[in-house]
Write a protein that binds this DNA or RNA. Structure first.
Lengths: 105, 105
DNA sequence: CTGCTATTTGGCGATTTGGCCAAGAGGATG
DNA sequence: CATCCTCTTGGCCAAATCGCCAAATAGCAG
């Protein structure tokens, strides 16, 4: 038996790790990319056109999403294709929308 | 009938707004606060002790969460109590965990 | 009113982020 | 081989973030 008074909370480090993943989503361009990838895999050039920023900027966004485990990449020929690894992140949107709606009554 | 080629995507501004909400969650201390508030309302002093930073720092975290619509506050006597407005944000954690697990096989 | 407590706000440095440009890496193609 | 093409990386700078301390605010007690 453990000490009963200890709160059943994840360790401090777990919150830091979660924050890293959530932070990777916390940018308009990256949300746009995730939204587009929910429709299927896309190459960097397609995502660059979508986002409308320099390809190097988009590449860095993708790198961040990849490091966070949200997307995976695969090189085929000259192009690199990205896809969602864990589509459950799409479920966020519905909740986020309800937070936004709750904020403006 | 609308132009069929137009993608059924939320407008650009929607992604910026979503990003603001997600960004408010994207910090270890704020995630810890949200986790604690899932157990019930808490005053700033309790949350300050939990987080372990200066009370002014915690107050600013709470202010950010409030501005994003994630928490609401209520003053009673000298204390200010915070509570979750939209508990669905707790559902994030399960998905985030699966992203983290997917990242380390 | 004076003092005490709980919280917020302002301001300051240190660090991080996000954009662009330029340069590099790595395949395909001739 | 040289060249083209797609993407990544490094560097730079402006802006945002996060912590602390100090000062301001607000409610309660005397």
């Amino acid at each position: 038996m453990q000490e009963l008074k200890i709160k059943n909370r994840p360790p401090r480090e777990a919150f830091a790790e979660r924050a890293r993943v959530i932070k990777a989503l916390a940018h308009p361009s990256r949300l746009l990319i995730v939204d587009e990838l929910s429709r299927g895999e896309r190459c960097v050039c397609e995502l660059t056109e979508l986002v409308g920023h320099d390809i190097s900027t988009v590449s860095k966004h993708l790198s961040l999403l990849r490091q966070s485990g949200i997307v995976a990449d695969e090189k085929r020929g000259l192009q690199v294709f990205y896809r969602l690894t864990t589509p459950c992140v799409l479920n966020f949107f519905a909740c986020i929308e309800s937070v936004i709606r709750a904020g403006k009554p």
